[in-house]
Nucleic acid binder design. Sequence first.
DNA 1: CAAACATTTCGATAATTTTAGAAATGTAAT
DNA 2: ATTACATTTCTAAAATTATCGAAATGTTTG
Lengths: 115, 115
Amino acid sequence: MITEPIDVLKALSDFGRLRVLKSLERKSLCVCEITELIGLATSTVSSHLNVLKNAGLIVDEKQGKWINYKMLPSPAPFFHEIWPIISKHLDDNPVIQQDLSKVASVDRKKICSNA
Amino acid sequence: MITEPIDVLKALSDFGRLRVLKSLERKSLCVCEITELIGLATSTVSSHLNVLKNAGLIVDEKQGKWINYKMLPSPAPFFHEIWPIISKHLDDNPVIQQDLSKVASVDRKKICSNA
DNA sequence: CAAACATTTCGATAATTTTAGAAATGTAAT
DNA sequence: ATTACATTTCTAAAATTATCGAAATGTTTG
């Protein structure tokens, strides 16, 4: 499945998905952690993750009950070249800054399950 | 009017608009030339041009009966950094290649008005 | 001024996308 | 195996976007 630049750009054209990517840049996260971080319904987050996955930007790996999502170590050239620039400029955004200040302390043990 | 990265990315998330930008990179064009090149209705092209203009990617300048659109000489940093990469990768696309092979010979005297 | 014509705006429709709740799936632990 | 729970899939609704034709705008030229 070849990913055209336009497909990557479409995947990057939603602010929620940019927030997810910026957070995943810091560390791998499961769906419920991302849901907590972004504040959207679980099914919506799952849908966004699927878009990012289909565009070849992230991968998932099962870890017991959870599914961890993380950025691709070696993404296709287009995304590999373009992402650092986008990432850098997103750092100016207050919402992103808030996300990043929270992401380090997000803990699935606390936020998922026994709420 | 400050343009956030997400606004630029949204403007870049439509293939028709990417075709317009690639063509404008070669030379300034009026709406009817772009319409001929891209094959969409004039009003649709005008709408796309407006999106690109609002995102700060292109400017227009009146030239008599026509309005020439062209890329900004000094766009905001985000687009300035990101566009060369996108542009380079779009060169692989057959539709873009076809557009670029036509753009040099597009002539408003022939395609507009006296059709 | 009137006719010609490039472009924009308006109005309406089709298509796509985002969203969320409910049901389904799959894994883990008791 | 039954319960608990993370995630996905399904379904439907709301929101946004792309598209076009017709009317409106503004400029040029006869």
